[in-house]
């Protein structure tokens, strides 16, 4: 409760809303005491607000929380048996199905789900205390979504690890592949082209950049990007078209500003596009089995380091 002094707005908001939230959360069912629930709310509130947050904002924030799922998660973390039963009935199957969608192989999915269970149950001890991963759930999104996200994070971490091992082995064994991956023509791109591009990119809004990266770097489909952003696929499609056109225009303009003629600038870009096509074709030929998740971002890193 030392935190209370830091943000009295949260404190008072919690006090004001506690009866309502407590009733909504169904804490009794999962065996969570009112005091502990209040403490949880304060903790969550402080984590996601700044000292400058007004009490009104704090209230809004607290009301937006999924208190019922929060209570369940925290009751599980605290080791209440009934809460665990409830949690397992509700989420066990979903968790496995999500793991399967993420890992795409039954065995891998099981392993992934099992390891998450272990984390959730809290076998890892921290200073002799059982620490459940569920403690870090704060009710900002659905518990189910959170579980999926945690699974995905775990998967990405692992994949990255194993991927590195595998690719090193492969590369040393198969010199061909290594050689084929090598001739990435480190574009001795005109520095003017480079800086013009950087300028154009830095002018992008985060969302535009997100869309662009998802599509061109991560190889996401339009549908996937649309679902990530909660918009329709056609919106993304239009956005991408527009972005590609405007980027081109801006880069050309940037290069001309830097003293190139229009023709020179266009040539610089055209050459580039052809390069890219070649590159894509070669990549496609190489990466015949589509990797579990985009290879590009993984590849990007080694190249960054080398370059």
């Amino acid at each position: 409760m030392s935190a209370t002094t830091q943000n009295s707005a949260v404190q008072s908001a919690v006090n004001g809303l506690l009866p309502e939230l407590y009733a909504k959360s169904g804490c009794e069912q999962v065996g969570l005491a009112r005091e502990s629930f209040a403490a949880i709310l304060i903790e969550v509130g402080e984590k996601h607000t700044t000292p400058a947050t007004s009490e009104k904002d704090a209230r809004t924030f607290l009301l937006s929380l999924r208190v019922e799922e929060l209570a369940l998660a925290r009751a599980c973390a605290a080791g209440h048996n009934h809460a665990w039963e409830l949690f397992l009935t509700r989420y066990r199957e979903k968790l496995y199905l999500s793991a399967l969608r993420i890992a795409r192989q039954d065995a891998a999915a099981r392993e992934l789900a099992d390891s998450l269970y272990a984390d959730l149950y809290g076998t890892t001890t921290r200073a002799g205390e059982r620490f459940s991963k569920l403690t870090s759930y704060t009710g900002r999104g659905s518990l189910e979504g959170w579980l999926r996200t945690v699974l995905a994070q775990e998967y990405v971490n692992r994949y990255r690890r194993t991927k590195r091992l595998v690719s090193l082995e492969e590369e040393s064994e198969e010199g061909v592949q290594f050689a084929a991956a090598e001739p990435e023509p480190t574009v001795t791109a005109d520095s003017r082209l480079e800086s013009a591009t950087d300028e154009a990119l830095s002018a992008l809004s985060p969302e535009d950049r997100f869309v662009l990266s998802s599509y061109y770097l991560d190889g996401r489909t339009l549908a996937e990007i649309a679902r990530m952003l909660g918009v329709h696929e056609s919106t993304i499609s239009r956005k991408l078209d527009k972005l590609a056109k405007s980027l081109r225009k801006k880069i050309l303009a940037g290069m001309m500003q830097r003293g190139m003629t229009r023709r020179q600038a266009e040539e610089a870009l055209e050459v580039d596009v052809r390069d890219l096509r070649l590159n894509i074709r070669r990549n496609l030929a190489q990466e015949s089995p589509p990797a579990a998740f985009s290879e590009k971002s993984a590849e990007a890193r080694p190249r960054e380091r080398s370059g």
Binding site: A200, L201, R209, R248, D275, E304
Partner: peptide, 14 residues
């Protein structure tokens, strides 16, 4: 979908 110049992808990464 329009082609995106390679430089753009590259700079996007870097």
């Amino acid at each position: 979908m329009l082609e995106l110049a390679k430089i753009v992808r590259e700079r996007l990464k870097i």
